[in-house]
Design a protein around this nucleic acid. Sequence first.
DNA 1: CCGTTTCCTGCAATCGTTTGTTGTGGAAAA
DNA 2: TTTTCCACAACAAACGATTGCAGGAAACGG
Lengths: 325, 325
Amino acid sequence: MKRITIQDIAKMLSLNPSTVSRALSNHKDVNEETRKRVLAVVKEFNYVPNLHARYFRMKNSGLIALILPEFNMFFTHSIMAGINQVLTDKNFTLIVFYSNNSYQREIEIIRHCISWVVEGVLLVVSDETQDIDHLEELKMAEIPVVLFDKVVPNDKFTTITIDDAQVANAATAHIIDNGAKNILGVFAHPSIDISKQRSEGFHRALSSAHMQGSSIFINDISKIDQLISNIDLATYDGIFMMSDELMINMLGALHRRCINLIDFKMAAISDGVLPKNISPFVPHMLHSGLKVGQLAAEELIEEVMSTGTIPIKQIKVQTSLISEP
Amino acid sequence: MKRITIQDIAKMLSLNPSTVSRALSNHKDVNEETRKRVLAVVKEFNYVPNLHARYFRMKNSGLIALILPEFNMFFTHSIMAGINQVLTDKNFTLIVFYSNNSYQREIEIIRHCISWVVEGVLLVVSDETQDIDHLEELKMAEIPVVLFDKVVPNDKFTTITIDDAQVANAATAHIIDNGAKNILGVFAHPSIDISKQRSEGFHRALSSAHMQGSSIFINDISKIDQLISNIDLATYDGIFMMSDELMINMLGALHRRCINLIDFKMAAISDGVLPKNISPFVPHMLHSGLKVGQLAAEELIEEVMSTGTIPIKQIKVQTSLISEP
DNA sequence: CCGTTTCCTGCAATCGTTTGTTGTGGAAAA
DNA sequence: TTTTCCACAACAAACGATTGCAGGAAACGG
């Protein structure tokens, strides 16, 4: 079936398309009477504007691209919820791409975004991404970009992160405050930036309490049982876990080794959802994906809306300690 | 900066825009020599086509809309991963909407989809949605729709679900096979369709084994501790949990009541991700979000691509029992 | 040498919407 | 009565890419 257009409406009412257009956009130059007639026809025939035509003419698109390296159950969903809230509010439409942690794919996606005339890009870089050369094209096309969560440090684009070292430090300090004497730190793959940062914060907390402790880096989470099998857990009385994913897996692994979790002082860095759902409760530095998503979207929209240039910001999201359920 | 267009390229090379366009689309009517020259300029100036212009002219869009009622960590992410795989493969672009479980919002979104001239819609209906009247508009606009996961039973659109009753039945049977004599079924809010279906399957399994058992419906998951506080768990030796969300919360709640989970024969319906991550292992009927997403996307694309009409299908996704880690 | 075919490129229209400019009739002001 | 002004609506151009058709030049056959 052929869609009804503004011209069809114009013809029916013996009006000019321009008048119909203005009627629909509440332009003052159109008589209230004619507007009524237009609206009536719109309703009767279920007219909806063709956004391709509109945005093509207007040279914008109302589209915001979100580029994610992967879909994981621990953080992505709340980030998306946060972004969506903001975008829906401001009447933007979200298109989602998935780089599959490939730098090459990320480049392709960015090209595609330009083709789509998106008005802004929200980017969580892939693990492979080491530089931001590929964002140059977006800059040239004057498309604002906000990097968040995993970022490449730079001074050309707004970034939104947490102070990983400081947060890990605070979480570890909480374990120490609870009286643990020997703490095990559990981290993800050591090559990714946040592992390094959080590990650093962990060790800083230990040394400022004049304590020792050790860290393990889980390269492949499915092998966690093996990886911790040669650790004498009895020597530890505290555990720090750098993420939700590690937390749930670590708890599972300990459980499989029939270790009583009550014996441990624990802390993690978490989105806050999982600790609400599982037992025992794990105190955590609340690193809310929802908030990060919202903030990223808000910053981006601000840049999109502004006419002039806006100062680049390096935002550190505040985190807080959640010490009880 | 102004974007470079086909006409700019044409001017530079003293060609006609039409020739440039044909060169770029590998049309045979253009000399290999000229094509080379065009490609060189394209590369030099980083030309990217304006998809709004193209799709506006071509009357399609390469867009597929995904409408979700909510973002939850338990199923959404794997559904999206599955969809994305297929769409990326077939060169479609995904736009995502979030109905926030509101029927009204769902209607708005569908309108918006038509406005965007999307080529297909993947829909998980909101909890409020009781009918499919609002999909009539899509049908009139000849936009294919695939309903999946949560659906409204109907014979006008392709649907992809699991046989909830049968799956719940099988899971329960597994608990019975393991020797449990008195089984507790844990279900979500009784007003949503899948709760009813799964509860029915659960009870069917019980009665065909000439057993009794009881169910509880968790209206508000944050109150799970209260809800199970008046249950004498000692009388049960088996638990069936209808979803990942209930599973993780139930395990947590039992743990808080210091109940030894080893004493229970358990089974659930699960996406499979969580059981890999937690301990104890919970046998489950594997209801893979990834697979559902893929299948939904594939079915939709097939309808989109086909010229004639395609038979409506009511697909039940196969599930399998995962009885060990 | 002319007619026909082949190969390549140009011309012009088109998609649906928006918007700057122009036109018109009637009322108010002079 | 003439001039001015205003409210309203029509006209036309534009956005960038695609495509049917026309046309020119070279190649080829007779």
